[in-house]
Each structure stands twice: as C-alpha cells, then as structure tokens.
C-alpha cells in the first residue's frame, strides 16, 4: 500500500509534526510520500526530502495554499488521493481543518488524532478528553487519518528523496484576509522538551509574565496556560494546553497555579514528568504529578529560581 503524508509547514520551515507523522506512516507501509502544501515552499520540500524512508516529495504551490485555506488544501490532496491507500495528516489546527473535507469527498470515515498504529486498518485514538482509548478498525478502502504528533517519535533525517512539483489549488469561495501570529523566541509549545504553564492563580497578565516567563527562559521552556488563564486574558489563546487547546507531551511539564481540571489534563497527562506547584494540597493536579510542591507560587518560584541557579542552571 502507498501512504501520503501531508507536511506541517509555514511556507518556510518544515515542522517537527511531519517527522512524527512519517513515523506513523512507516508503520503502515514502506511506500511513503510527502506532500508539501504551500506558497514559495521549495525549501520546505527540500527539508522533507531529507527524512529517512521517504519515497518522494510532492510540492503543490499556490497562493491559496500559502494561507492555509481548507478548500484549497483539500482539493490539492484530493487531486493525488487516487494513488494512495492512506492519507496521514498531522493533527495540528491546519491539518484538522482540511483532513475531514478530504474524507467527506472520498466518502470515508476520518479517523481523528490516532496515538497508535495497531495494523494497517486498526488504530487507537483517545476519546472523552483522553479519559478512554478507543481501538477502531476501518472498513474503508482508503483511509484519512490525523496523527497526534506527541504520540510518535520523530523519523530520522538522512534520506534524499526526489522532489516533484504538482499542481496547486485555489480557495474557491473563501478569501484570506489577514493573520496575526503571536511572536515568540521560545520553543514551539507542541514540540518543546520543557513546558512551564500558569493558571488562574496568577491573577493578571502582568503577574503571568512576571512569574512564568523568567522561569520558562531559565529552563529553555515553552510557555503554556490553562483555559482559566487564557479566558481571563492572562495569556494568549494560542498558549492553551488541554482538550480544546494544544496537546503536549514534553519531558517535563511544570504546572503552576493550575488546579488540574479534566480538560487541562487531556492536554498534558502524557508528559514524561509532571511537576505541580499549588497552594491547595487537594488540587486534582497532584493526582497526576510526579513531584508536587504545596506552596504559594509567590514564594515557591523565587526559591525555585534560586535553587536552579545554585544547581548551575
């Protein structure tokens, strides 16, 4: 069988989710191609060609594809779908946006956010905010699957697949107007090795920045937030970790002033080590934390900064 992986990219950079989706794809088949959707994204295609185990890279380039418009992305994938038995898409906001369109047009049931490949037609996916895992077997001849990147290791680099250009697609009845991206020099939340997250306890945007950001910088960590902190305007929406925000699985997740609601845990409970700092010793976050410190963050964080400095960090 042949598998098409759609790359996660921003026209300039190939994102890590692609490597992880390739790992899932290689469990299905040895014949894995990557499709890069973008505008002026030749560098992304060249980077994709270096992933080991990839047969070839297809580059579809058009203005609409550069702006993440689902109609154009789905059409570009559909134009190639005839040659593949499975289409795997990283479960990013962009991937989740167009993959179900592709499935509907092919008249197949999409399989969302798989975390395990059991066999070529059987997959495991979380349901109910990650409180249950469902093993499903697909009877569709062609499969459209989104892949939760945090559940798979990244495929190695070292390949040299050929790059071919295929036709782009247009946006139909949708027009891109503008975008406003949060600028950050920190690691990307979904791919970071360490994540420092703040919750409602911070009380204000200023306090969130004062407390969370220096600690994140000291640890080389990405910054996350609970829904409460985002809703209260302490942190941008894009920082939200949880069922409705980002799913992360870093080596170290530090939850500060976060109670640990079901919806938040859905986004971080697969982290390797979880640290909770909370003054409420009954907070549910302590039930999943490997190391818990019952303390007010106002005293605990300066002490933690000092202890890190003392340990040479």
């Amino acid at each position: 069988m042949a598998v098409l992986v759609v790359a996660d990219n921003d026209n300039l950079v190939l994102r890590d989710g692609t490597h992880k989706t390739v790992t899932a794809a290689l469990k299905l088949s040895g014949d894995v191609d990557i499709l890069v959707l973008g505008h002026g994204a030749k560098a992304v295609a060249d980077a994709a060609a270096k992933i080991s185990g990839v047969r070839k890279v297809l580059l579809a380039d058009s203005d609409a594809l550069g702006h993440g418009v689902a109609e154009a992305e789905a059409d570009a994938v559909l134009a190639l779908a005839g040659g593949y038995d499975a289409i795997l898409v990283p479960a990013t906001s962009g991937g989740k946006n167009f993959a179900p369109r592709v499935a509907a047009k092919l008249d197949v049931a999409p399989i969302s956010e798989i975390v395990e490949v059991v066999s070529a037609d059987t997959f495991v996916r979380p349901i109910y905010a990650g409180n249950a895992l469902e093993t499903v077997q697909s009877s569709d001849a062609k499969k459209v699957i989104t892949v939760r990147p945090t559940a798979f290791a990244a495929a190695e680099e070292g390949g040299s697949a050929p790059v071919e250009t295929v036709s782009g697609a247009d946006a139909g009845k949708t027009r891109f107007v503008s975008e406003e991206m949060v600028k950050s020099d920190r690691p990307e939340l979904a791919a970071a090795k360490i994540v420092v997250s703040g919750g409602r306890a911070m009380g204000s945007a200023e306090e969130f920045q004062r407390v969370i950001e220096p600690l994140a910088d000291k640890l080389g960590a990405a910054v996350g937030a609970s829904r409460a902190a985002v809703d209260a305007g302490y942190a941008p929406n894009d920082y939200q970790v949880g069922q409705t925000g980002k799913v992360v699985a870093p080596a170290l997740y530090v939850a500060i002033g976060i109670s640990g609601a079901i919806q938040h845990l859905a986004g971080m409970k697969d982290s390797k080590i979880i640290v909770a700092i909370n003054k409420d010793s009954d907070a549910p976050i302590f039930q999943v934390a490997d190391f818990g410190l019952v303390a007010d963050y106002k005293t605990a964080i300066p002490e933690l900064m000092d202890a890190l400095a003392a340990a040479g960090k």
Partner: peptide
Amino acid sequence: EVDGGLQVLD
C-alpha cells in the same frame, strides 16, 4: 483560532 495565533477569512 489557529496554531500560532489568529487568522481572518472572508
């Protein structure tokens, strides 16, 4: 709401 920020479509 998209990864990385906000996007406006018409």
